[in-house]
Design a protein around this nucleic acid. Structure first.
Lengths: 357, 357
DNA sequence: ATTCTTAGCGAAAACGTTTTCGTGTTGACA
DNA sequence: TGTCAACACGAAAACGTTTTCGCTAAGAAT
């Protein structure tokens, strides 16, 4: 087994100095043609590649991006990672992943583990617990140490940094508008109980669309699911809740759900109750994941373009990293309220499938 | 903005030497109580944390694991990552992710990007293209440089390293046995065309189970899908193929599919043809993903325990990294054919749901 | 009074780079 | 013959650590 070769070894072997080797390999014209040839050949033979860690230390940049997300077994988040990895790789960066598992503490631990030189900047989405606690000091502390952050999806005004969000509000408006255009008269909303997250914006969009169309919102038509409990593993509970909801509101002819799980479950229940989709009830769900594509009938959704979000976030971060750093420091030093942090809004798109007419 | 503070700065500020600061912070009893107190207080005040890159360079280990997988928007792979991240974090390691996107070249590029000091070892699953090419030199080259690799799921005998695999063969046997016990007489197999991957083992398991039960395999009951084309985005093609298959083989009363997509599509088609599940046809799919859980009816599956695979793989790798390295080097140097590389087999489990009786 | 310990600290090397600044040799030119 | 430029290369610093070794001074032991 031959360990990776270093400049020093090449130098010793070829009886020149380390500096000469370094220069020869970078093609400096300070070194004679002869020596350069010899050194390059030798290096190639032994497959010399500069040690990244040494470079990182010297350059004080790691060419690595830290991703910190609540969960990875999740269609949306994994598409975002794919987007980030795509442009990161293209631009010469690596990607290191940390999972907060929706926990405040794990989020902090992960940040501290990475913020000590391992990465050049963060791309993250805030954990539920952090959103509940409304404690964002760790983000600000990181930024104050000169490490840029780009937040996506679950963002927060209290932290000044670049952000990439999906237009939850207008996505919901579009969806509900579509149902209204499709002649739905009694549109139900299935949403989450906790109002901290993006769910709130989607609910607001629902209300806005109704109002715009001069429809009076009926609170009976709004079902709030307690998503603190682990729904994924207690599907019966979800199903029962939705079934009761349907039975209490027989007139429902349209459903807008804030995620695809609620949407497909609603379809399942509706079919069970003898309703046909889309004839009797039309359904639209937020988030375009695997479930939507393969449900029967296939589900019309509001796509969030996760991959695109990831790409944009990565570009934003790398642009910032590679722009003149003194500039960035200025922002921080001045604590300039109208500093030009960018907030990118990714437009949603309605993917029409069989669950709507 | 205050950049992260270093030992040197603390030393200068407190008018001691760098070594003294380092020792004081690590609680060396070489330093007097007084000085230690003073230094520790100062360090805490300025939130000193040692620079990871410098430590990596000094210790010649990064405490980082490289994961290289074909795809991340994929339930199985993301559960594996979750498992890896879990134990990695617990044992003080970070996790850096590279995606090969099923491409041989991207796999190599990614490996080279990471193998130059950025990580201590790899956990990877081989890309389809690499399996087709049967070119594994990059794996062996990496191992020869002293960097351990743990392969999972898609492994290959040509590379000597630790491996974690799921028992595809027996998983398939179990599944088909279950169908037979449930009185299925004509069990169809829906598998993939390319015989390189794990699909082959599952097919063999199917055949074995039939034979064990003295059932003669009928080649008409085997449908091979060409998975070189992008099935996910051309569901109609898949659906049509399966429909034709069903129409040609009316006697089918059981289906074993090598992945959940094929299984749910089979269910969809069966229902369309007026067959009820599980009364007329029973279905079992390999891989327990989101689709299975939410299909109607819910799908009985062979679970691969992805998270567990990830955990085992991570433990294997970290054990190797932290065991006396000279030992490991021995294996490589001697190129010992019966060297104790470990091959862990994760047992599959049948998750019974509504698609079987 | 001399030697020996020991406590408390600093200097320096090492990890693997890149880069700046010297330095010695050669040949040309006056 | 002496001066100078150009060429080819090496020494050393720097990035931020840890650790080994050495040094000094004070007190203990002889």
């Amino acid at each position: 087994m031959k360990r990776k070769i270093t400049l020093k070894q090449i130098a010793r072997e070829l009886d020149v100095s380390i500096s000469t080797v370094s220069k020869a390999l970078s093609g400096s014209k300070e070194i004679s043609e002869d020596t350069t040839q010899k050194i390059q050949a030798f290096a190639k033979l032994y497959n010399y590649k500069p040690n990244n860690i040494a470079l990182s230390l010297k350059n004080r940049k790691t060419k690595t991006i830290g991703i910190l997300i609540p969960e990875i077994v999740h269609h949306f988040f994994s598409t975002v990672i794919r987007g980030i990895e795509l442009v990161a790789n293209k631009r010469g960066y690596n990607v290191i992943v940390g999972l907060s598992n929706e926990s405040f503490t794990k989020e902090i631990i992960n940040m501290e583990m990475l913020a000590n030189g391992s990465i050049d900047g963060f791309i993250l989405s805030i954990s539920k617990e952090t959103l509940l606690k409304q404690d964002y000091h760790h983000f600000n502390a990181t930024i104050n140490q000169g490490m840029p952050i780009v937040m996506f999806d679950r963002v927060v005004n209290e932290v000044e940094c670049d952000k990439v969000i999906v237009d939850d509000f207008n996505g919901a408006v579009k969806a509900v508008n579509k149902l209204i255009q499709n002649a739905c008269k009694n549109i139900a909303l299935i949403t989450t109980m906790d109002y901290v997250s993006v769910g709130r914006l989607r609910t607001q969009g629902y209300l806005e669309a109704l109002e715009n169309n001069k429809i009076v919102a009926d609170s009976n038509l709004i079902l709030k699911i307690d998503d603190s409990l682990d729904v994924e593993n207690h599907l019966e509970i979800l199903e029962n809740e939705i079934q009761k909801f349907f039975e209490l509101n027989k007139k429902i002819d349209g459903v807008f759900a804030v995620n695809e799980l609620y949407a497909v479950t609603a379809m399942k229940v509706a079919k069970k109750l003898g309703l046909s989709i889309p004839e009797d009830v039309q359904v639209i769900g937020f988030t375009d994941g695997v479930l939507s594509k393969h449900a029967t009938p296939t589900l019309t959704t509001v796509s969030q373009h996760g991959q695109k979000m990831g790409e944009q976030a990565a570009n934003l971060l790398i642009d910032r990293l590679e722009s003149d750093n003194t500039e960035y420091d200025q922002y921080i030093v001045n604590n300039n309220p109208k500093s030009d942090f960018i907030k990118l809004v990714i437009e949603t798109e309605i993917i029409e499938r069989e669950s709507t007419k």
